[in-house]
């Protein structure tokens, strides 16, 4: 009987996790200017409003540039770190890897504030570039986590076999290692992209007067009239995230299946 009881609890827990997200579409399609029960009727008005909003489009553009750049940068840096940590032993490895993974638990307000102090004191103008700098830092641990799984599942003999068959180190990396970890790289890119797209604190403090999606949403939450549109935007964003994460998960698993290792979620 115990498994059933536990299973029921787990389902309830999932419901708790998803409850707020499930509310999103309800209000996004609700024909009322205030976000409250009871629901009034069906409308797509808020989606239309969202589509025509110029500031929102600018925010979207900024967010895509930031997320794309941070994803690429953090994944590239992550490849170095993941390769080093899975393949090599070197002095102070624990400390170095710990430092690289630290942004995962360091409160973002600390990262944002300390960066802000430095950037302002050396006279850097805040822009989406400064946000990219911050986002690359916080996306890197996520990318490394995914990439480490990909690199760790590689038989070290693959690289030696390629060299044994006449390839240089670089040739071995390009022809054997890279294709085998490619699913992990794609997965890391997508996850970093999602993290950056969703990140608020660093964007809020480091973007200057440039809006990103989360900072735009935050600024609109003060205005009750904008909230139904934000609900519509939220619905789209959540759907987008789920699609991206599903693709990421697909690639991660394909990579795992290819190298024949056991499956184990994201973290």
């Amino acid at each position: 009987m115990r498994p059933n009881w536990l299973g029921a609890y787990a389902l309830l827990y999932l419901l708790f996790l998803y409850a707020p997200i499930l509310l999103l579409p309800l209000f996004a399609f609700n024909d009322a200017t205030i976000v409250a029960f009871p629901l009034r009727g069906f409308t797509t008005q808020w989606f239309g409003e969202m589509w025509e909003n110029a500031t929102l489009r600018r925010a979207l553009g900024n967010s895509l540039i930031i997320a794309g750049s941070s994803a690429v940068l953090s994944t590239c840096l992550g490849i170095f770190a993941a390769r080093a940590s899975t393949r090599f032993r070197f002095p102070a490895k624990g400390g170095i890897m710990g430092a690289i993974m630290l942004p995962l638990v360091l409160p973002e307000i600390i990262v944002a504030m300390s960066l802000l102090v430095v950037l302002l004191s050396i006279g850097v103008t805040l822009s989406i570039v400064t946000v990219i700098v911050g986002h690359t830092l916080i996306c890197m641990p996520y990318a490394i986590t995914v990439l480490t799984t990909a690199f760790a599942s590689l038989d070290p003999a693959f690289e030696e076999a390629a060299q044994d068959l006449g390839e240089s180190k670089w040739g071995a990396f390009r022809l054997v290692i890279l294709p085998l970890v490619m699913p992990g790289i794609i997965s890391a890119l997508l996850i970093s992209f999602t993290v950056s797209l969703d990140e608020f604190i660093i964007a809020f403090f480091l973007a200057g007067n440039q809006p990103t999606l989360p900072t735009y949403i935050f600024s609109q939450l003060r205005f009750p009239a904008s909230i139904p549109m934000i609900m519509a935007l939220g619905t789209v964003l959540v759907l987008l995230s789920i699609v991206m994460l599903t693709i990421a998960e697909y690639f991660r698993r394909r990579g795992a299946a290819r190298t024949g290792q056991n499956d184990r979620g994201f973290l």
């Binding site: 038989d155 003999a157 693959f158 060299q163 044994d164 190298t259 024949g260």
Partner: peptide, 18 residues
């Protein structure tokens, strides 16, 4: 290693899975 006149059969065989 890549220019030595030797070739190796690895314990795990290291057959490239892709």
């Amino acid at each position: 290693a890549n220019v030595r006149p030797t070739n190796m059969v690895f314990q795990s065989y290291a057959i490239f899975p892709h």
